[in-house]
Design a protein around this nucleic acid. Structure first.
Lengths: 252, 252
DNA sequence: GTATTGGCTGACGTAGCGTCAGCCGCAAGG
DNA sequence: CCTTGCGGCTGACGCTACGTCAGCCAATAC
């Protein structure tokens, strides 16, 4: 009994007959013979190869990669290392996605409608001018001018991309906050670095420690900003500010 | 200017024209008019709808779900909560997958060939009998008999599934060990619970504390087992045993 | 007159099979 | 002898969210 039919191999290996035909079709696992009315006949070597295939597939490798490995064209260790890196990237992505989704849920449950415009824009010019005057008096011209003016001449596409970037950062911070992390926790500070870079990118230069702290103050004290940040969660504005202060003190 | 063409909307929203045509094709976002040679014309309401679509899509929701939400047939919060649960499941899966892949890499780098048979089977009957006699003398009949005999009358499909289950557990434990977790760490013990259940399933009943400790001893002292476990990493057998001992003491 | 720009409608490709549909051969039961 | 049933075979569509041609049309700029 050194030869098996499709259904037998399927039962032995725990896969479907369709899968075996598929593997035949893509040349990944060809039966020992195709004789007698196209009947597939598998021998012991094919069974062994199938074991390898299933093992590699279980690790999440794509079938074409599996084929290259089994063909000897690709080093399994190299392939697996690359694959591990991809898995890691995907894990990071999912972590952030989870934070964003949860932040959105909290926002919706708090009665806030979902709109990207939440973060910027949408204010009428008169109101905006009022806030700018007010804020300029309290935190100095440089910070406020930049925080607002850089946002003026953006393409609409950028107007969409920027809130998303801020949303991501807020979601990540909010998740850490919910996990009980302090504002000066390294994990939190890691996110603050991203926030600092984002601000720097839009300001066109690196904010000084004072300017960055000023921005943090803006977040907690300026109603327009504060309301926005409090949407993320009660007390989030203060948490954000504390994290920014910690960063300014430690790294700027 | 309250009406835009495909390319304009594409630029404004930061998506491709093809995407807009696709959304039209699947009825997710239909232009305000299709007049003049099939030219698509989008108005302000369509732009707003597109914003919502992109927001929800960015959260990882599928387009048909997005459509249901926008159509009012699905509560956004419900949908997002289910989605969050799915993300979480996927994260867990990726965590374990990463552990398995890394364990496999270490195994391959240690010069071990990859084969599911590593864990069980493949011994010739004479050698196996010798080990069984030897082991029986040292750890008592009950443990050894069961550990081996239960493995005798398995279907080949089960022979493949069982090593995979053990591999998963070993990979997860190995990852925790590399992360510096102690054998009695709750995270580690969580995996041990799975191990205990797996053993219980194959033995047909719940091992006593003594039997489970005996199995741990088997892992460190019996060459056949020990070699296998050391493949996972230097000193892994001892770590495994310590974790099993901790579980037996605390929970059995 | 022509080159460019922008838009349109198909239609294929993607990963890994699940799921019919339709046809063939072999063996047992009536 | 005919029917039924089992197993196997070959297409071919379906799924996700578009990317990427191919081929054709219309308005505009030179």
């Amino acid at each position: 009994m050194d030869v098996w039919t499709t259904a037998e191999v399927a039962r032995l290996a725990g896969v479907s007959a369709r899968t075996l035909r598929h593997y035949d079709a893509i040349g990944l696992l060809e039966p020992a013979s195709h004789g007698h009315g196209g009947l597939r006949r598998y021998g012991r070597p094919e069974l062994l190869r199938l074991q390898q295939i299933l093992l590699l597939k279980r690790l999440g490798l794509r079938l074409d990669v599996v084929a290259e490995i089994l063909q000897g064209d690709l080093d399994p260790v190299d392939a697996l290392k690359r694959h591990a890196a991809e898995i890691d990237t995907e894990r990071t992505r999912l972590d952030r996605l989870a934070a964003t989704v949860e932040a959105t849920i909290r926002q919706l449950e708090g009665g806030q409608p979902m709109a990207p415009e939440t973060w910027f824009g949408g204010l009428d010019p008169a109101t905006e001018a009022h806030y700018r005057d007010e804020a300029r008096r309290r935190w100095g011209q440089a910070v406020v001018e930049r925080a607002w003016e850089t946002l003026q001449d953006l393409t609409p596409e950028e107007r969409r991309a920027i809130p998303e970037a801020f949303n991501d950062i807020n979601a990540r911070l909010s998740a850490l906050r919910q996990a009980g992390k302090a504002a000066d926790d390294p994990d939190v500070q890691e996110v603050v670095v991203d926030h600092y870079r984002l601000i720097a990118k839009h300001w066109g230069d690196q904010p000084t420690a004072e300017a960055y702290r000023g921005l943090g103050a803006l977040y907690t004290d300026e109603p327009r900003f504060k309301d926005t940040y409090e949407q993320v969660g009660d007390g989030f504005a203060a948490y954000m500010r504390a994290a920014m202060d910690a960063y300014a003190e430690a790294s700027l």
